[in-house]
Amino acid sequence: MSGVVASTERAGIAKSAVLRRLPLLLVGAAFLGVLLAMPHTGPLFAWAFPGTIPPVYDRGSFVALAASHLAIVGIAVGAATFCGGAAAIVVTRSWGASAAPPVQLITSVGQSFPPAAVLAVLVPMVGFGAVPTVLALFAYGLLPITENMEAGLRAVPAPVKEAAAAMGFSAWRTLLLVELPLAWPQAFSGILTAIVVSLGTATIGSTVGALTLGTPIIDGLVTNKPGFVLQGALPLAMLAVLKELAFARPRR
């Protein structure tokens, strides 16, 4: 009897979770649909912007652009998570406390640099393409990731750490089995913030030759093809809505 109640309850919870996620799933499906359908919209854009040849951006598939976009963000945020996480661990150890202010200065000072300027300045050092974009996104991602990871680690109650030490845990074990798991939720919200910011900023990378969903827009602006601009802007706007639906809670 109680088993039946529990299972119907569980079904109810699962159903409401799906319902809550429904807008996200719908927009996600629409986003993929737009990416796949874009190459076949030639007649539509030919009618809307007559004289543009070709009517639809054709120097790469939209799916490939999206994949490259995501890969750039993934590599940058991954690297920032690794470095920022390591920095946060160092500055929360007793021997690394002196490094906390300089780390904070370095991670925060970059935030006020205009992304377009940073990308442009990186080009003479590392050349055109995805590399300057990855480097810039890495730099912008460091602050939220390090800050949240550090806050998460500092929030671990001292008695918990003391108890771990009293039970014979080494410092390393305490970090791995106690501190990191407890700090994870907050650290994760920092990573999400970095992802959300990076997904948008990556677009500017197209101005220095990175392949992203912004590439058709830049191409359209440079060669004066408003159709291209719209073809790039539409999936990007959908991506923005998608981000908001997926990550809205941790960003507040």
Binding site: G200, T203, S206, G214, G220, A233, L236, A240, R251
Partner: peptide, 21 residues
Amino acid sequence: FGVLNVVQTVPSVALFGLLMA
């Protein structure tokens, strides 16, 4: 806040483009 949040996450390049038409 919902609308402004979405606007904020639309990449600048895309928003400039979207406003053109």
